[in-house]
Design a protein around this nucleic acid. Structure first.
Lengths: 198, 198
DNA sequence: AAAAATCTACCTACTCATTGGTAGAACGAA
DNA sequence: TTCGTTCTACCAATGAGTAGGTAGATTTTT
């Protein structure tokens, strides 16, 4: 027995992350999942229903990943490197960030969806702010501005790098940006042994 | 006598930057420019012709702006701040970066267009690499990694911030990221008087 | 346990607005 | 008269979404 709904979510996510929200159709999705177009409407009545479900699933996966990083990695810089590695997966697969894709088409999207996306980003910023604040307290991080502004900058840099390096230098280019980002947060005089093995 | 072609380019750019490439149509454009749909085809036979022209014009404007910054501003950090201010205009107007928008829908775009966009980003990276290298030589910039990787990171951070802050905190949020970015590039012990007045 | 009712997941076969694009005529300026 | 521009009037294809039906599993009633 196959879980059609899950399959639809998986393939729809890939399509959106590859071609954008307006750039994929129920017909495309129907073809890749090998189901009739009308059957998709049974699971997701409208396209924006599907989009909501997509964001919810994506968000939940990130929630789990953030929690795991926090639990498994004590060092702040390593936590950020691990966070960056989540994006690296996208670059490797040639897929943009779901929420970045949707954010860009923002003006054409339902307001509720835009709110979901905003919450996604806010959550990441808050998480990073916490990580940075702890790192500063522990002396393993040097932040030039307030942690909040730096947190925003880190998310922005990673989102931007995913967007750009998918077209330019691929994983190679992304790793470079991630390394530069992490190095910039290290206190002066601390070596950066591990940044090239992220 | 009005320059319809220029008007078309202007309005099309706004539409794309607001809703994405797949998210706007010749019908939309015709309505805002108050012309018939078929007349647009006279100026831009196909949609991808229009897209190419859009990128070319956008790219040319950035070329001019980068040259002006280089000519008018001697200090490296101030140059980067001025570069960031170019993006700020987008946040204020609620418009994404044209090339970021197109990059995200990359897989659905003609390959030639993708190449144009890649060149746009490469150019910015190269420009920033030059600015950073000069700054390092002059002692006004401290780069933790190689200038090339830092340059990539700067473009990524600004592209990402424009994308995100359009939905989140607006110009306020963007200025914060820009300040954090610039502060991170300043040599230790140098005050950041001007970052809040960018 | 058998029969009846309901539900789930999928189907074919549409609707109807919109998409990018074309053909060819009309207009105005040089 | 010719050229550049804009128009009306179309086209085939595709978009999201709907109507209504069928086969099979599940639940409810007798």
């Amino acid at each position: 027995m196959r879980d059609t709904r899950a399959e639809l979510l998986l393939q729809a996510e890939t399509l959106v992350r590859r071609r954008g929200y307006a750039g994929f159709s129920y017909a495309d999705l129907a073809e890749t999942v090998r189901i009739r177009k009308a059957s998709i409407h049974h699971h997701f009545p409208t396209k924006s229903d599907l989009a909501h479900a997509l964001v919810a699933a994506y968000d939940a996966r990130y929630d789990a990943a953030l929690a795991e990083i926090r639990a498994g990695e004590p060092d702040a810089i390593e936590r950020i490197a691990a966070y960056g590695a989540l994006y690296l997966g996208g670059v490797e697969a040639g897929l943009g960030c779901l929420c970045a894709v949707l954010a860009i088409e923002g003006d054409a999207l339902p307001a509720t969806l835009r709110a979901d996306i905003a919450r996604f980003f806010e959550k990441h910023i808050a998480w990073l702010e916490g990580v940075l604040a702890e790192g500063v307290a522990a002396g393993s991080v040097r932040v030039s501005a307030e942690p909040r502004a730096t947190a925003r900058m880190v998310v922005a840099a990673l989102e931007g790098a995913l967007l750009m390096e998918r077209l330019l230098a691929g994983p190679e280019g992304f790793r470079g940006t991630l390394a530069a980002l992490c190095d910039g947060l290290r206190p002066a005089g601390v070596s950066s042994d591990r940044t090239d093995t992220i």
